[in-house]
Design a protein around this nucleic acid. Structure first.
Lengths: 232, 232
DNA sequence: AGGCTTGCTTGACTATTGTCAAGCGCGACA
DNA sequence: TGTCGCGCTTGACAATAGTCAAGCAAGCCT
């Protein structure tokens, strides 16, 4: 790894409040890998050999069973994945693929485990990360079980708009079929859901989305702090 | 708390490998509460004031939204709940109710947080607990999204049978409507699903379940290590 | 025993979501 | 400038699950 890259890696939030010696030890055996889009990074069921930290790009977490496949989440820069598996040397529960060309920091599992054993600061950092991840999945499970597809879409639109300056107008950050997977529905259903949101003055033209009546949409979506996180 | 109870509390797995001084500090402000069946212990959205550890009994974790309600999981002795919320002083994402009369150890949130800050052993114990909890929810999410109701029931039966000596015969540990909630289906659907499993030689008489052809059931269920945990 | 509640089942219907197939529109590229 | 492929949409249909209502059976309490 280049010196400049090392600097960047040390600044990752996950490594703050961790003994610098332990951080160096983890970075020493680590790879900063570039992956092209659509490449599979890890596969469900395999043993956990590296902790992955996204430096740049977007990663889709998914899993399949029989002939079905489902997207469990999307992660971006600064986020780690499969930390829980790495820590206790368990098989991955999820697969991951790069959605766009991405840079991933891969830290060998045993380096993570020894830092976890040796340094209290790192143990706390790990716990914080796992707590956030846990709450994220619980929210996703609630989103999935307590809402219809249309409601999930409406809430996603509101959340995404809020994260982009609440201008009531934005471009979809990825293909609609990725959004469909993210929301847990077939692409055809997403199409129909967008059409149904016409009644709430949502105008979709290709990747561009216009929310012309946020209040009406909010009334349909009924966003909720214990599912969507931030108060909308 | 009585001396004998204190002994019992110190033996909780969650407190192993933790500085005894910190354990005492946590137990000092803790309550060992008895709750009758059906009582709500915590409520979604409220601030996290106590870490709950189940000493005896069964607790249902659930949450509602609008007029819907869903069960997110069932927990038994030795398990903690809402640890993630307590640790970082966030509102509960789930509600909890006692399914049967239960004894719960309630540790004040600030005592948990100071032990977490002060003791590396406890921080690691917390991380381990959160990692398990995280993996549990991920499995639940996959179970929910990748399987039909009938498949979830078939897998539950196999898992439960395996946990009870694989005798192909057991009594349901709770009411069928609780099982229905656990599996994420309406009670009526559970009834029909049991009826449908007749074709796989599953015989249900009130609370008693007889699996007369485990192989056929397994072929339907297709249990999987990355959803069901143990290899069946 | 009579009457009540509660848990469960069953039937009929509806809602939601997935699947298959066809077709449209736009950009890539020869 | 065609035409090929891909992403998306639409229609028709099927599968899955929820809802409402009626009814049954076991336990409980006078």
């Amino acid at each position: 790894m280049r010196h400049q890259d090392l600097e960047e890696m040390r600044a990752i939030p996950f490594f703050q409040n961790v003994d610098p010696g332990q951080v160096e030890a983890m970075l020493r055996g680590a790879f900063l890998q570039r992956f092209p889009a659509h490449v599979e990074l890890i596969h469900t069921g395999e043993p956990a050999d590296f902790l992955h930290i996204i430096v740049e790009g977007t990663v889709e977490l998914f899993s399949g069973h029989r002939d079905r496949e489902t997207t469990l989440g999307l992660s971006g820069p600064g986020e780690t994945f499969i930390l829980a598996a790495v820590l206790f040397d368990r098989p991955y529960l999820q697969s991951a693929r790069a959605l766009v060309a991405s840079r991933i920091l891969m830290v060998p599992a045993d380096a993570v485990r020894s830092a976890f054993t040796a340094d209290a600061g790192f143990a706390r950092s790990v716990a914080a990360n796992l707590a956030e991840a846990y709450r994220g999945v619980v929210k996703e499970l609630k989103n999935q079980k307590l809402r219809s597809g249309l409601e999930r879409l409406a809430n996603w639109l509101l959340t995404h708009d809020a994260a982009n300056g609440s201008r009531g107008q934005f471009d979809l950050p990825f293909d609609k079929k990725v959004l469909a997977a993210r929301l847990g529905m077939a692409p055809e259903v997403l199409s129909r859901s967008f059409a149904a949101l016409g009644a709430y003055h949502v105008v979709v033209q290709g990747p561009s989305v216009l929310l012309k009546d946020v209040d009406a949409l909010r009334k349909l979506a009924q966003p909720c702090a214990t599912i969507d996180g931030t108060t909308l």
